[in-house]
Design a protein around this nucleic acid. Structure first.
Length: 818
RNA sequence: GCCCGGGUGGCGGAAUUGGUAGACGCUACGGACUUAAAAUCCGUUGACCGAAAGGUCGUGCCGGUUCGAUUCCGGCUCCGGGCACCA
C-alpha cells in the first residue's frame, strides 16, 4: 500500500477543521423558516486544562448536535465559561497571579483544546461570566427583584475560621477544621442576601409532572428536595415565657405521644437557661463548633441537655420537659420541635439514650402487635391513649386535631417545604459584586440602574486573609444613591450558581448591550437538549429553573422551563475512582489527542459506556478505538483502489450481496434508533463495527458486489459522522462526493432490503435451551410448534413425558412445558 | 443519617416491551507475516464435566411471582452521586 493511503489523523483533522472554519459551518442566525434545535452542554469552569470529564460531556453533546443537523435541523451549539469561583482565588494565593489574569489565560488555552477536538460550536456567541458585559445583567435583575420583594437580607450560618478570620466553604472544612489553618471551625451567623425561591416552590414542584424529557431520577430528587409536606403549626405554652413555643408537625395525629420538646442552641429559651446554668452554657458553646453542612449534622452524635423548663401539652395539659439539642437548627423552621419517640425514629433514639418516656398513641391499622419500646412505629394507624381521639384513623385524627387548634386559635394547617430560600452572598473576592450600598440613614439601597455595572476591580492582591475588596476604599466608599451621604458598598459577591442560572438564555443574544435578553431569546429558548453531570441534578438545575420563571415573570422570556430534554452523564473513573488531581489518577486529554488524534479520543469516549454510566478509563481501550479507525480507513482505501464503482442494481443481486445489503440496512435502523432516540452511542458504534467486519469478510469484486460495498461504506461514514467527524469528512470525499459530510442528510432505511425468508427460532423445554430451528418468516404458530417438536435434541427431552403446554412467541422462541 | 443511582466473564460493557445471558471492544493465549521487533491478519477465550455430541452451573446476597426473571415484587449488602459556600 502506498504511504499516502496511511491513516494520518493530524493532517486529516486539520483539513476537516479548516473546511468547517472556512465555511463557518456552525455559526447560526435566527431563521424563523427553519426548525431550530438548541443543543447545550453545561459550560465549564476554566480550571486550566480540559479533563476527561469535559471531553466526555462535550463529545456527547456534539454527537447529538451533529446528528440533529443531519436530520435537517437548524442547530445552535454554543460554548462559554463559568469563570468566577474559588480556584482562581486559590491560584492567586499560591502564585500571586491576579484571578482575572489566571482565568483569562486558562480560557484561551482551553478554547484551543476545544477547537482541536472538533466540536461544532458557534464561537461568535461565546459567553464569559466574569466580564462586566455579562454580570451587569444579573446585578440589574437582582435590583429588580429587590424592588419586587423577591430578595431580602437575614442572618444565616457560615463556617468561620477563627485563625484566618475568613469564611470557609464546606469543601474547605476537613474533619471540622480549616484546610489551611487547621483551626476548629465555628458556626457564625452573619447577615446575608437571599432570593425567595420558596415563592416558586409549588410551581417548581408541579411542573416536574409534565417534564417528560427529564430522567425520572432527577425529577424524584428535585421533588424530595423541595419536600412539600402538609401539616399543622401549633403552639405550646412554656412556663415563665410570654411567647408560646411554635412547632410544625406533619403528624398531628401523634400529638398525645409528645413526651419532650427540643430547641436549638441559639433559641432564646436555651440562651436564657444557659445564663443560669454552667452545664447548659458549656453545651450551648459546644454546639457552636458544629459544621454548617447537613451531612455532617445528620451523621454526628445526637446530643442534648435538659433545660429544667417545661411546656404545657395543649391537649392533655401535662408538663413536657424542654431540652436543648444539637440537631435542631435555629435557622430552619421555628428552631423548636416536638418529639414523639413512639412514632419517630430520631426521637426514639434520643429518648432511649436519655431515658425519656416513650408512649404509644398509634396502633397498627391491621391490628398486629406494636411494641414502641423495641422500635418506633412510624406507620399510620388507629389512635390509642389519646383520650377523645381514640379509635380515629390517623387521617381522621389529623383533621380533628387541626380543627381543634384552629378553633382555639392555637394553631393552623399549613404547608411546609424542605426547600429553603437561596442564600446568594459569598464572602469572596472573585465573583459578581452584589449591587447594594449601605447607608446609615437609608439602610440597604440598591445601586441605581444607571450606575450599573458595579465593576469588580481586577488588579488586586489576594492573600487568603480577609477580603481584598474591603481593603479598597475606592471600591467601598461611595455616596448613598438616595440621600447623597457617605455610605459603604457591599463587599460580598454572588454565589457562582447565579451566573450559571441564566447563561443559557444569554447565548441567544450574547452581544445585547441594552437588555439582559432580547427578541432572539424567543427563537432559541427553551434549550432542546441539555447535557451535563448528574452531580448537578439538584442545585444548578433547580436554580436555573427558578431563574427561568423569574425572567418569565419579568417579561424577559415566554418559556416556563429552560430545558426540554435533559441528559445526565456519569463520571470518568480510573481504577474505580473519580479522576482528580488530588488522587493523582488523571489522564491528560491533550497528550492523547496529540498521539492518536481527536477522532480516536471521541470514539473511545463514546464506545466504551452509555452516557449515563460511569466510564472506566482504559489505555488499551483507546488503542482499540485507534485500531478501528485504521481498519475503517483501510477498508475505504482498498475499495477505492479497485477503481470507480458502478451504480447499484438492487433487482439483480445474489444471496451474499443481498445479505450484506440487509446487514447495511439493519445497521442503519439500529444506529438511527441508538443515536436519535436512545442515546446509546456505545451500541451504535458496536453495530457499525459489526457492519465493517462484514464488509471486510465480503470478498466479491464483481461490479454488483462493489456497488453493494460502496453503499455499505457510505452508510458507515454517515452513521459515524457525528462521532468521528474528521475522518468521515475525508472518507466521504474519497468515496466520490463533492459535498461535505457535515451537510449530508442521515441515511434512510430501505425496508425492502430487510426482508428475510427464513428466520431462526429457539426451542426450550421447561425454559431450558434445547435446540434451534429454521422456519419461514411467515410461518403460523402451529407450524412452528410442530417443527420445534421434530427437533432431534428436543425429542430427547420430551420423548417419554407428557406435554402440558407449548408456548410459541413468533419470531423468538418456542417453550415446551413437560 | 436522608434522597437518587449502580452491582452481569480476566476487564469496559450488550441483552430496547418478562423470551437465546455475555453483542462489540479490550486483555490473554496460539498461529501467519518478518532476519528481528512493531504494525497487521487469522483462531481460541464465563466456570465445570465430556474424546465429541452434548450436559450442569452461572447476572452482588436471601426469598417470591411466572411456562420463562439480568429484567417485576419484598428484604439485605457493597459501591458511587447529592445534601444547600466545590463547580
Amino acid at each position: 500500500m502506498s504511504t499516502d493511503a496511511l491513516y494520518t489523523p493530524d493532517e486529516i483533522e486539520q483539513r476537516a477543521r479548516d473546511y468547517w472554519d472556512g465555511e463557518r459551518c456552525f455559526e447560526v442566525d435566527e431563521d424563523p423558516g427553519k426548525d431550530k434545535f438548541y443543543c447545550l452542554t453545561m459550560f465549564p469552569y476554566p480550571s486550566g486544562q480540559l479533563h476527561m470529564g469535559h471531553v466526555r460531556v462535550f463529545t456527547i453533546s456534539d454527537v447529538i448536535a451533529r446528528y440533529q443537523r443531519m436530520q435537517g435541523k437548524h442547530v445552535l451549539q454554543p460554548m462559554g465559561w463559568d469563570a468566577f469561583g474559588m480556584p482562581a482565588e486559590n491560584a492567586a494565593i499560591k502564585r500571586g497571579v491576579p484571578p482575572a489574569e489566571w482565568t483569562y489565560k486558562n480560557i484561551d488555552y482551553m478554547r484551543g483544546q476545544l477547537k482541536r477536538l472538533g466540536y461544532g460550536y458557534d464561537w461568535s456567541r461565546e459567553v464569559t461570566t466574569c466580564r462586566p458585559e455579562y454580570y451587569r445583567w444579573e446585578q440589574w435583575l437582582f435590583v429588580r427583584l429587590f424592588k419586587k420583594g423577591l430578595v431580602y437580607r437575614k442572618n444565616s450560618v457560615v463556617n468561620w475560621d477563627p485563625v484566618d478570620q475568613t469564611v470557609l466553604a464546606n469543601e474547605q472544612v476537613i474533619d471540622g477544621r480549616g484546610w489551611r489553618s487547621d483551626a476548629l471551625v465555628e458556626r457564625r451567623e452573619i447577615p446575608q442576601w437571599f432570593m425567595k425561591i420558596t415563592a416558586y416552590a409549588d410551581e417548581l414542584l408541579d411542573q416536574l409532572d409534565s417534564m417528560d424529557g427529564w430522567p425520572d431520577s432527577v425529577k424524584t430528587m428535585q421533588r424530595n428536595w423541595i419536600g412539600r409536606s402538609e401539616g399543622v403549626e401549633l403552639s405550646f405554652d412554656v412556663d415563665g415565657e410570654e411567647e408560646p413555643l411554635t412547632v410544625f408537625t406533619t403528624r398531628p395525629d401523634t400529638l398525645l405521644g409528645v413526651t419532650y420538646m427540643a430547641v436549638a442552641a441559639e433559641h432564646p429559651i436555651a440562651q436564657k437557661a444557659a445564663a443560669k446554668n454552667a452545664e447548659i452554657a458549656t453545651f450551648v458553646e459546644e454546639c457552636k463548633t458544629m459544621q454548617a453542612a447537613e451531612a455532617a449534622l445528620e451523621t454526628m452524635e445526637k446530643k442534648g441537655k435538659p433545660l429544667g423548663v417545661f411546656a404545657t401539652h395543649p391537649i392533655s395539659g401535662e408538663k413536657v420537659p424542654l431540652w436543648v439539642a444539637n440537631f435542631v437548627l435555629m435557622s430552619y423552621g421555628t428552631g423548636a420541635v416536638m418529639a414523639v419517640p413512639g412514632h419517630d425514629e430520631r426521637d426514639w433514639e434520643f429518648a432511649t439514650k436519655h431515658g425519656l418516656p416513650i408512649t404509644q398513641v398509634i396502633a397498627a391499622g391491621d391490628g398486629s402487635e406494636v411494641d414502641v419500646n423495641a422500635a418506633a412505629f412510624t406507620e399510620r394507624g388507629t389512635l390509642v391513649n389519646s383520650g377523645e381521639f381514640d379509635g380515629m384513623t390517623s387521617a381522621e385524627a389529623f383533621d380533628a386535631i387541626a380543627k381543634r387548634f384552629e378553633a382555639d386559635g392555637r394553631g393552623r394547617r399549613t404547608v411546609n417545604y424542605r426547600l429553603r430560600d437561596w442564600g446568594v452572598s459569598r464572602q469572596r473576592y472573585w465573583g459578581t459584586p452584589i449591587p447594594i450600598i449601605y447607608c446609615d440613614d437609608c439602610g440597604a439601597v440598591p445601586v441605581p440602574e444607571a450606575d450599573l455595572p458595579v465593576v469588580l476591580p481586577e488588579d488586586v492582591k489576594v492573600t487568603g486573609v480577609g477580603s481584598p475588596l474591603r481593603d479598597m476604599p475606592e471600591f467601598v466608599d461611595v455616596d448613598c444613591p438616595q440621600c447623597g451621604k457617605a455610605a459603604r458598598r457591599e463587599t460580598d459577591t454572588f454565589d457562582t450558581f447565579v451566573e450559571s442560572s441564566w447563561y443559557f438564555s444569554r447565548y441567544a443574544s450574547p452581544d445585547s448591550d441594552n437588555a439582559m435578553l432580547d427578541e432572539r431569546e424567543s427563537y432559541w429558548m427553551p434549550v432542546d437538549q441539555y447535557t451535563g453531570g448528574i452531580e448537578h441534578a439538584i442545585l444548578h438545575l433547580l436554580y436555573a429553573r427558578f431563574f427561568q420563571k423569574v425572567m418569565r415573570d419579568e417579561g424577559l422570556s415566554a418559556a416556563d422551563e429552560p430545558f426540554t430534554n435533559l441528559l445526565t452523564q456519569g463520571m470518568v473513573l480510573k481504577d474505580g475512582a473519580k479522576m482528580s488531581k488530588a488522587k493523582g489518577n488523571t489522564v491528560d486529554p491533550q497528550e492523547l489527542i496529540e498521539r492518536y488524534g481527536a477522532d480516536t479520543v471521541r470514539l473511545f469516549m463514546m464506545s466504551t459506556a452509555p452516557p449515563e454510566l460511569a466510564l472506566e478509563w482504559s489505555d488499551d481501550g483507546v488503542q482499540g478505538a485507534y485500531r478501528f479507525l485504521k481498519r475503517f480507513w483501510h477498508a475505504v482505501q482498498t475499495h477505492r483502489e479497485a477503481g470507480v464503482t458502478a451504480a447499484l442494481q438492487i433487482s439483480s443481486l445474489d444471496d451474499d450481496q443481498k445479505e450484506l445489503r440487509r446487514k447495511t440496512h439493519q445497521t442503519i435502523a439500529k444506529v438511527s434508533d441508538d443515536t436519535g432516540r436512545r442515546y446509546k452511542f456505545n451500541t451504535a458504534i458496536a453495530a457499525v463495527m459489526e457492519l465493517l467486519n462484514a464488509i471486510n469478510r465480503f470478498d466479491d469484486r464483481s461490479e454488483a458486489g462493489r456497488a453493494v460495498v460502496q453503499e455499505s461504506l457510505e452508510s458507515c461514514v454517515l452513521l459515524l459522522a457525528p462521532i468521528v467527524p474528521h475522518i468521515c469528512h475525508e472518507l466521504w470525499q474519497q468515496l466520490g462526493h463533492e459535498s461535505a459530510a457535515v451537510d449530508e442528510r442521515w441515511p434512510q432505511v430501505d425496508e425492502a432490503a430487510l426482508a428475510q425468508d427464513l428466520i431462526e427460532i429457539v426451542v426450550q423445554v421447561n425454559g431450558k435451551l434445547r435446540g434451534r430451528i429454521s422456519v419461514a418468516s411467515d410461518a403460523g404458530k402451529d407450524a412452528i410448534a410442530e417443527l420445534a417438536l421434530a427437533d432431534e435434541n428436543v425429542q430427547r427431552f420430551v420423548a417419554d413425558k407428557t406435554i402440558r403446554k407449548t408456548i410459541v412467541v413468533p419470531g423468538r422462541l418456542v417453550n415446551v412445558v413437560v
